[in-house]
Write a protein that binds this DNA or RNA. Sequence first.
DNA 1: ACAACGTTGGAGCT
DNA 2: AGCTCCAACGTTGT
Length: 637
Amino acid sequence: MRFATLALAALLLAACVPRPAHAASGDASYIGEVFMMATSFCPTGSVEANGATVAAASNPSLYALLGTTYGGTSTNFKLPNIKPQGSSALAAEVGGGSGGAMGATSIIWFRKGLRIHDNPALLAAAQGADHLCPLFILDPWFLQPDKIGVNRVQFLLESLADLDASFRARGSRLLVLRGKPQEVLPPVFKEWGVTRLCFESDTEPYAKQRDAAVRQLAEAAGVEVHSSVSHTLYDPQLLLARNGGKPPLTMQAFTKLADAVGPPPAPAADPPEKLPPLAPQAASLDAAASGVPSLADIGYPPAGTTPFKGGETAALARMADYLSDKDWVCAFEKPKGNPALFLRPATTVLSPYLKFGCLSPRLFHAKLQQIYSERSGKHTQPPVSLRGQLLWREFFTLCGSAVPNFDRMEGNPICRQIPWADDPARIQAWEESRTGYPWIDAIMAQLRRQGWMHHLARHSVACFLTRGDLWCSWEAGQAVFDKYLIDADWSLNAANWQWLSASAFFSQYFRVYSPISFGKQYDKNGDYIRHFLPALKDMPAKYIYEPWTAPLSVQQAAGCIIGKDYPRPIVDHAVVHKENMAKMKAAYDAGKAAAGAAAGAGGAAAGSAAAAAAGGDGASSSGSKAGAKPAKRARKS
DNA sequence: ACAACGTTGGAGCT
DNA sequence: AGCTCCAACGTTGT
């Protein structure tokens, strides 16, 4: 029997408090969910989502979940009012579908979530299915060599090969088709006799639009669609609703929100040892045309240069490796890591596995909590702890899902409008390790070669490109990172670039990373630079962060003439970072003036450009006493 | 109004 | 390694 047909649905809100055996997960933190029923009544333990007002005391668990998101007071709350979409057209299509007694054929459609552990969409697809077709579609959108580099694509193909091996061990295999999903899927639905399509929900703009289109096509073909949240610890939509429809904009506000919602769900159960076979029509596909391709097959160079290997197997091994040192796990503090370590990085390098979903954040979270609990509270805390890093990911994913134009300055309501210069030559020099600052150029070399750099190294180069030195738009840097990083994640990349350029989240633009002294603190001898910039490998440590200051005789002895074998500095940091600070100050002031003008105009948007141009401190009524020194701020001990 | 604080700054001093 | 000052942002809490 089919479930959740839209046509008959009376939409209900499940108010069931900890269900004893929640969908094979044994999850003690489960509170409830909104779901549709193909009936006109609600099952036991649930209430109809009809907008009714409920006393908080009568259902504290549901109140904890919903709060007054849909209205109410401190003593009562309102349920969402979700109307059945009773459409006879849908009813007819569902009735005419190929489901019913014929036997169920499911597709588990992989996009991210390239794993079999903690994969609720896979479990939903396998549930009661006679045939299960594991499918990945190579979307040309993600295979543009000029925009997406070989390392991340290699990582993806390795992840697919690993997934394929997991399915083969369970009597199946992964089918890899090529094309736009909106075009590939409809004929597949028909030819394979598909009755159910399951996938992991994805909050990126491209994915949202793609999935909405596919959902429509599936429903038109009588295919039941099931999506589940498993890319993040929390459901971003739920968090957003709990926060009144607006994303939190500080980590503290986010952490509070997450705490109020409670612990995230536990990982789902592992899939059975034996999975249903492919649909006959799928099984008869040519193996070469429906298997994992090589890089060359899809228009890429034959091999990448990253040392990091994709796949669930590698992800679990890497997690186990880093988690085996429990002292290290409990003492982890992000800002204290050494960005210059490259043989064994100072952080876990689990980010690419989380990006592709080779590793479940819920599994990683559960493992961390297990280790923390063994230490009875003796461990670091968010935002700097290892668990805190997962929360940053949640925070930025939530912002990315809720802020319009999150990957751009224009039309992005949380992004400061800053008049960056358009200077392709500077951007290219930065991308290609030709800034003349070895610390910066080495980091960019590591990016191009490995597809990964330490977090603080990313900060250094991002600050340098934008507000620190080159005064180029963060969007340009974002595109370069998106091209080369194996862990490039749309939301996280946009959020971090806004952070580092002091465009959003972070405002202390007077804190500028020095391209000379920052790296020196960690790596006095410059081993990191020598490794990634061979031209400088014999430069004495005294000069390696500022080789242009080395006497010519030293340059000759090192076999590296500045201006010939390695470039001169593209800008003078000591000069430009001060100039840029002043430009930031002006941009901030203009933004404040524009906001003040907009508010003064009764919310009308008109006139903001004029206000920005005026640039004066008309909006400032502070009248601060000149010369009066502010009270010294007590340092925290 | 004002102080404290914010995952990760730098320089110069002891 | 730790302190102070630099010149000074927005948010949050009192």
